[in-house]
Amino acid sequence: MHLSRTHWVVIKISIFLLSLTPFLLLVNDTLRDQLGANPVETLHFTLGDWALRFLCITLALTPLRKLLQQSWPIRFRRMMGLFAYFYASLHFLVYILLDLSLSWTHFIDEVPQSPYILVGLLTFLLLTPLALSSSKTIQKRLGKHWLQLHKLVYIAGISAITHYLWLVKSDISEPLFYSAVMSILLGTRLILYFKKTT
């Protein structure tokens, strides 16, 4: 595509604002007391949903580039990845601040008993170095190690799905939907990997 620099800036700003919209809507609902009977749960679940959606979008960009044989999807990969981390951080913060009320005692009492929370924490920990090493300067400095490090996102994708599947009581249709999406996204990479090696 032949777009000028200005065009790209406008497109990027639009995508940025669009990606921020779920957050702005939540802030609006919080201020207007529109989060329902269990506002902390609504915040927590909505943020978790968006973290997972942005993680899927991020992972979809490389296969999209190959499918379209165009490089533009990669221009958005960092932004989408950082939005995944943004929503994951808020999801984590809501849990620590509003659920555990910042209490270490509650953390020790409740977290080790909940395997799905441990898996959620693991996902967040895996995403942290990726977010921290996302700038171009660090990317250049790390060289080929950058790519190796960022393969952690595959494990994060699997653990995010596990976290979701594990917490649901009986109706697993939504986590199954995301499992299917994640399987396709990671599956394409596996296929390409084997094609390359054989």
């Binding site: 919080t30 269990n38 506002p39 509003l98 009492d109 409740e110 909940s114």
Partner: peptide, 22 residues
Amino acid sequence: VPHPRWSQSRERILGASIFTPK
């Protein structure tokens, strides 16, 4: 007695503000 997947030691009070602890 925790549920195998979550603690039962505290509970969220429905309708409470987001800053009300469980």
